[in-house]
Every structure is written in structure tokens, then in C-alpha cells.
Computed example of a mutant assay.
Amino acid sequence: MDEALRTSKLRLGSRFPRDLRADVDMYLPVTTEVMPGLTVSAVRSALQRRKIEHHVSDSDRELHGCLVARGGHGFVFLDGADGEAERRFSLAHEIAHFIADHLVPRARALEAFGEPIRPVLNGERAPTRDERLSAVLARVPLGVQVLLMARGPGGAVCTWDVAESERRADRLAFELLAPAAAAMASVQGILGDVEDPSHHDQRQAAEHLASQFGLPVTEACSYVYLLLSRRRRPLSVEIFGRR
């Protein structure tokens, strides 16, 4: 989390619910657009209007949010038909992808290889054989990172790396909107120190969390479960895994 925020230079407000879009507009090279009835084909059309060359899946499906990023810049599309809380979480999720899957790998590659690798990261040339070998040895990804995640026709996650990226983005999105320390204090204010709270009590805690931090109730329920299970696991492990 510290590396992600240092890399992004994102500064977040201290009041909740956070106005994440205002913070993103101020600190990140990301353009956000709200579109009614967001679909893959709508994203494709929007990119064509902006004259941005980026491959988008040939299959069409509805989306809550979508990120396209190249060269350190990002475009986030959100579904205008969603409610405010849903859009807030979708934005946080896509920004988490932008930071964790685009900015952080770029920063690591630039640190490892220097400025000569920038054209590779921007998709302007292919990496050399030596660069590919060095990248594998250093565990540094090269090339344009995957931004519109590969899915099945109905939107199902089909590969482990996509599932891992989605899991990480959700964890980081929770932290952006409801920092774990503050969220845990909120949950414990409802549940106390009960080790195995009932489903009803967890739901009550989730509704309180949703109200305080502006989360959708469904995501707040997932976050309560995560917070309770994470009492023995550090945040860095939950977001980025063990290294």
C-alpha cells in the first residue's frame, strides 16, 4: 500500500465518504467519464472518438467500470446507471488497477532499466532479448500491462492472473475508500470483540460501514468478512500477496 501510494502520489481526503474522483482529478493522470449503459462496445466507441488505439474485446457485455491505460495515463469509464455508492466503488476498483497493474510495474521497470525501457512500456518497441531475460530474472514485467481484463463471454474470470488482479484491486479499493484501521474501528464499534459474530451482526456492521464510508452494502459485507479474517494477516499480504 505504501509503495502504491508513493508511486501514484495520490493524496486522499480525511473526510468520509471520500470524494475520490476529486482526488483522482487532482493527483493522477486519469480521465474519468460516466456513460449511461456502459458496455464493452461503448468503451470501444469512446476510444475511437478519442483516437486512442487500444484493442478491446470483440465480445460485448455490460460493465460497471472499465480502465484503459497506456504510457502512464489512464481512462476510466463508469456506468451512469449505477447508484452513487456503486460508482464510487467502481472508480476505486479501476484506480486500484491503474496503480497496482500499471503505475507500480512501470516504476519498477524504470528503476531496474532506466529511461531506455520507456518506449517498451509505452508499446513503441518490443523488448530486446537481453531485456526480456533481465526482466524475467528481476521479476519485472515489461510491455503494455493488461488493462481491459480478459474475460469469458458473460464476464466470468477465466484465468488465475486475472482473478488475482481482481482480488488485489478490490483490496486496494477498500483501502482507498475505507482505510483498514478506520474501518476496523467502525466494525468493532458494532461487533465489539466477539470472535465469531452472527450473520445478523455482521450484516449490521456492514450496513454501518456502508453508511460511514459510502460503500455499496454488498461490498461492505465482503469487507467486514475480510476485516474479521484479517485480524491475523497484515494488509500488505492481503493486497499484494507474499513476496
Results as ranks from 00 to 15, higher is better:
M26E: 15
R44W: 05
S59Q: 10
L12R: 06
I190R: 15
V24E: 00
F174S: 08
S229R: 07
V194C: 12
V68T: 09
V217C: 11
R21T: 02
G143Y: 03
H200N: 06
R106E: 10
G155S: 08
D2C: 06
D196C: 05
L235G: 03
A156I: 03
Y225D: 11
L67C: 11
S134Y: 00
V187Y: 02
L78V: 10
L227Y: 01
Q202L: 05
E33P: 05
H55K: 14
G143F: 05
D25A: 11
L148C: 10
M35N: 03
G192T: 13
D60W: 00
T7C: 10
M35D: 10
E86F: 12
S14W: 14
A100M: 02
V120M: 03
E62L: 12
A173C: 04
G65K: 00
H64V: 03
P119Q: 07
L5Q: 03
G114C: 11
V104H: 08
E62I: 09
T31Q: 11
H97W: 03
E164P: 01
V40R: 13
I99E: 04
G37C: 06
A109N: 06
L172W: 04
R118G: 03
V30L: 09
V24S: 01
S45A: 15
Q188S: 11
P36Y: 06
A135M: 04
E94Y: 01
R70P: 04
E53A: 14
L12I: 06
S59D: 14
D2V: 10
P141R: 07
L28H: 03
E33V: 12
T7R: 04
V76I: 15
P197H: 08
A42D: 12
A183R: 00
T31H: 13
A185C: 06
A126D: 15
E53T: 14
A183C: 12
D60Y: 09
A220I: 00
R87W: 12
H54N: 12
P119G: 12
R50K: 13
E62R: 15
Q48E: 15
F89T: 08
A163I: 02
M184K: 02
C66I: 04
F113T: 08
A85G: 06
Y223L: 05
C221L: 02
E166G: 08
P197A: 05
D201V: 02
A92K: 00
A206D: 03
F98L: 03
A150S: 13
A4I: 05
Q145C: 03
D161M: 05
Q204A: 14
A180R: 09
E166D: 13
E33I: 10
D58H: 15
R230L: 10
L177S: 02
V187M: 04
F75L: 14
H208R: 10
G241V: 02
R242P: 07
A206R: 00
L121M: 10
A107W: 00
G37P: 08
S186H: 04
R167C: 04
W160P: 11
L63P: 08
R87P: 05
C66Y: 07
F75E: 02
V76T: 11
E62P: 11
Q145Y: 01
F77V: 00
S41A: 13
Y225L: 09
V76W: 04
V34F: 04
H97F: 09
V237N: 01
D193C: 09
L63I: 02
V144Y: 01
R242G: 07
V30Q: 02
E207Y: 08
A42K: 14
R21H: 01
M35T: 13
P216E: 10
P105I: 03
A183K: 05
P119L: 07
